[in-house]
């Protein structure tokens, strides 16, 4: 955009919204669509004909159609105004995959028809009954690891007549995280990974991830721990338990990974974390500036991947 920076900043400041956000007067814009402009030209021609022929019925019809257009603009505005965006979440994704953006909309007070929500190239449509809330799921492409600032979200509508488009751009305080790009599993060099304290590569670990029984599922367990076989009996969810004494803990070390490039090293470590988490192993991460104690579970995996994602760019 060729706007001076300070104007751009002013505009952006205006569009910034805190969650939960409510679409109001200040951030709803409305302009005629192309169809609306054609309609306007057609009305103008009718008005000229009515003036020239001093035909009052033509006047009346022109004014009725013109008023219908104006009132439809109010309807379009009302279709957006008061719409609530209750929360927005940008789920982490591996670089190159689409990050899922989840936006929870609620139609406060009135019914809403055909709202189009667009973020970047990705768009979705939704209609809401009065008071109804619904979560929209949009994909956001990722190109590099690290923080992913959410692009402007635009909610728009052409309802009811398509003559006007009302839209509301929102800059949300939502930031996503892009994990490092994954390399194919075959690229992972498990044997070169050194355990901490004890010796043994992944081969040993893989054997020693021994199954210790089944117990009721706790939310903290993470989906990878669910024993689907046991849960399928319909008496609630069950989690697999691993005998902690047997499972060896691994520490993936920055310096031990065999990689030629900086980013490749990060990708390899991320792949190891993911693979270890998938196999239910305990693992830790040693980075040049950070050491993460061994552990397991989704939260732990996220911590490790986040640390990798936020590593500074190659010097």
């Amino acid at each position: 955009m060729a706007l001076p920076r300070f104007i751009r900043n002013l505009v952006l400041a205006r569009l910034r919204a805190d969650l939960p956000a409510r679409l109001g007067r200040k951030r709803i814009f409305i302009l005629p669509t192309r169809a609306g402009m054609v309609f306007g030209a057609f009305l103008l021609a009718m008005l000229l004909a009515a003036i020239n022929y001093t035909n009052n019925l033509a006047f009346l019809l022109t004014f009725i159609l013109g008023s219908v257009a104006v009132v439809s603009a109010i309807h379009a505005y009302a279709n957006l105004a008061g719409l609530e965006l209750e929360h927005g979440r940008l789920l982490p994704a591996y670089c190159g995959e689409e990050a899922r953006l989840q936006l929870m909309f609620r139609a406060a007070g009135r019914e809403r028809r055909r709202l189009k929500v667009r973020v970047g190239q990705s768009a979705a449509e939704v209609s809401l009954g009065a008071g109804e809330g619904r979560e929209l799921d949009l994909g956001v492409p990722t190109t590099r690891r690290g923080r992913l600032p959410l692009d402007k979200v635009v909610v728009s509508t052409r309802y009811p007549l398509g003559l006007f488009r009302a839209w509301s751009p929102l800059i949300l305080p939502v930031t996503g995280l892009v994990y490092p790009r994954l390399l194919p599993v075959e690229a992972l060099d498990w044997h070169l990974v050194q355990g901490s304290g004890e010796d043994g590569g992944l081969g040993a670990v893989a054997q020693s991830g021994e199954f210790g029984g089944i117990r009721p599922y706790r939310p903290a367990d993470g989906p990878s721990r669910i024993s689907w076989k046991a849960s399928a009996r319909g008496q609630g969810l069950f989690a697999k338990e691993y005998r902690s004494g047997v499972a060896r803990t691994l520490v993936f070390d920055w310096n031990e990974v065999r990689a030629s490039e900086y980013e490749e090293r990060i990708s390899l470590l991320a792949g190891l974390v993911r693979e270890a988490e998938r196999r239910g192993l305990g693992y830790g991460l040693r980075l040049p500036t950070l050491f993460i104690e061994p552990g397991s579970g989704a939260a732990h995996a996220h911590r490790c991947l986040e640390a990798l994602a936020l590593l500074p760019e190659a010097a």
């Binding site: 009346l60 004014f63 009725i64 013109g66 008023s67 219908v68 104006v70 009132v71 439809s72 109010i74 309807h75 009811p160 007549l161």
Partner: peptide
């Protein structure tokens, strides 16, 4: 509804 709302304006 749209038409009814437009009529006063048109008049």
């Amino acid at each position: 509804v749209l038409l009814a709302q437009s009529l006063p304006l048109a008049l």
